[in-house]
Design a protein around this nucleic acid. Structure first.
Length: 91
DNA sequence: CATTTGACGCCAA
DNA sequence: TTTGGCGCCAAAT
C-alpha cells in the first residue's frame, strides 16, 4: 500500500472518509488505525482544519461517547449523528 | 524556527 | 463516580 508516504493527515482523511453511515469512530480509534494510537489529539487538530464535506468528520466522537467538537457547529453534528442513527450509550 | 493551543485519552486521587 | 493532571501530535501564532 502507498500509505507509507502518506502523512498522518492524509491517513486520517482516508479513514474517516471510509466510515459507513450510521457508524462512528472515536478520535483514539482513528489515530490507532492511522498508525499513531497516541495521536488522538492530532486527529482532532487535523479534522478541525478539514473543510471537505466528502469527509464525514462528524462521525468521529470522543471515547467517552461525547460528541467532541465540529467545525460546522456542534449542534449540527449532533443533528447529523441523530439522523444517521447514532445512539449515545443505550442504558 | 520556537512556543502555544486544542474537535483527545488514560491514570491517580 | 467525578475532577485534576500528564502525555502526544499537528496546526496556528
Amino acid at each position: 500500500m502507498c500509505n507509507v508516504n502518506m502523512t498522518l493527515r492524509e491517513k486520517i482523511f482516508a479513514i474517516v472518509r471510509k466510515i459507513p453511515k450510521g457508524d462512528v469512530l472515536t478520535y483514539g480509534e482513528v489515530a490507532r488505525r492511522a498508525g499513531r494510537p497516541k495521536a488522538a489529539r492530532a486527529v482532532g487538530a487535523v479534522l478541525k482544519t478539514n473543510f471537505d464535506p466528502r469527509i464525514p468528520c462528524h462521525r468521529v466522537i470522543r471515547s467517552d461517547e461525547s460528541l467532541g467538537g465540529y467545525n460546522r457547529g456542534i449542534n449540527n453534528k449532533k443533528s447529523i449523528l441523530k439522523k444517521e442513527g447514532f445512539v449515545p450509550h443505550t442504558t
